[in-house]
């Protein structure tokens, strides 16, 4: 090949590749998210009897927060007249007029923020998180906000020091950045170890106590936390991502079961805090989610579905059968009076 031919080939092919890149990028910028356009309306937190969630239905409102009346849940085709808000979140929870929204800050740098939302889902406060969003919770009174992220991206999955959990007290503005620094009390005795790891906070009604998973020494304990005393006291083993019932008597959680899908080895259980009795729910599929209580007898949780995920419901006492609640949805939050 002569020098001239080579230059000619270089110029032509480079021009072609550049054209493909530019045209595709401009078209991608111009299009909507694909699928039908969806109406965007205001959604607020002061409307009991609704479920809020991150909608994954195809369309312009994908990954936005959406609300649906409890009366209209269970529509198998997803035609539930969901109201889609302009706010988008990856992980979301809300209570008593306060929301927490974990969202992407910069995709290429893998940075995320934990944003506190007001009653109208408008941001009031933002905190940088140390990694990829995992769980988020707001206390029943709306004063405490917790979030868990995977630290250091994904490369440490498999090692046991891969999450970080923070709690924000909105009354004082105090941020407890890393719950691993709290005093762990194992079997009644103060306990220190290098491999302590905390995730999946759920709050009690007194706006101080909480429950979370404390992992150390090969165990994944349910721990009762005290924010004022900065302690975590283990009370039960093999409990992950706890969720406290509204009456404060039961914990719904995922329990690790040997011999199941290695990437999702958990099944949904409930624990009676007064007796310590574990009850398997009738949901036989494995799941990876922090459950949400619909009321004191029913638990909501997410399972993988056609468009990413669906929200299901099952009785807490092990009876009945699982029921599909909201198609194409993640991070369900029940708005309570």
């Amino acid at each position: 090949m002569t020098r001239t031919t080579r230059t000619l080939v270089l110029v032509i092919v480079t021009a072609l590749l550049a054209a493909v890149a530019v045209v595709y990028t401009i078209r991608a910028a111009g299009r909507s998210d694909g699928g039908p356009s969806q109406d965007i309306t205001e959604v607020t937190l002061d409307q009991p009897g609704r479920i809020l969630f991150r909608t994954t239905a195809a369309g312009t409102g994908r990954d936005h927060l959406a609300a649906v009346d409890l009366a209209r849940t269970g529509k198998d085709d997803g035609a539930d007249d969901r109201r889609i808000s302009p706010t988008s979140c990856l992980v979301f929870h809300a209570a008593h007029g306060t929301g927490v929204c974990l969202k992407l800050a910069n995709a290429a740098l893998h940075t995320y923020n934990a944003v506190v939302l007001d009653n109208r889902l408008l941001p009031v406060d933002s905190h940088e998180t140390a990694g990829t969003p995992s769980r988020a919770r707001v206390s029943p009174g709306g004063n405490l906000v917790a979030w868990t992220v995977f630290v250091g991206g994904e490369s440490y999955a498999g090692l046991d020091f891969s999450t970080r959990t923070s709690i924000l007290d909105r009354r004082s503005g105090t941020l407890y950045d890393n719950l691993e620094t709290f005093t762990v009390i194992r079997d009644g005795k103060p306990y220190t170890a290098a491999d302590i790891n905390v995730w999946g906070v759920t709050f009690a009604a007194d706006e101080n106590r909480f429950y979370a998973t404390v992992s150390t020494d090969g165990h994944r304990y349910l721990a009762e936390g005290d924010l004022a005393a900065k302690t975590l006291r283990t009370i039960h083993d093999n409990v992950e991502c706890p969720s406290l019932s509204p009456d404060g008597t039961h914990i719904a959680y995922k329990k690790r079961i040997a011999g199941t899908d290695p990437s999702r080895p958990w099944k949904l259980f409930t624990l009676d805090l007064r007796t310590g009795t574990e009850t398997p729910t009738s949901e036989t599929r494995t799941l990876d989610d922090q459950a949400e209580w619909l009321d004191n007898t029913t638990v909501l949780y997410t399972l993988p579905g056609d468009l990413r995920a669906d929200v299901w419901a099952v009785n807490a006492d092990g009876t009945g059968q699982p029921k599909m609640m909201v198609r194409y949805a993640l991070s369900p939050t029940v708005l309570r009076p």
């Binding site: 893998h110 990829t132 994904e154 999955a157 990437s263 999702r264 990876d288 993988p304 990413r308 995920a309």
Partner: peptide
């Protein structure tokens, strides 16, 4: 990682594998 974990809903554990 963002595309897989957040876009496609792969768990970080599965991504690690």
């Amino acid at each position: 990682p963002v595309y897989l974990v957040l876009g496609l809903g792969l768990s970080p554990l599965a991504f690690g594998m």
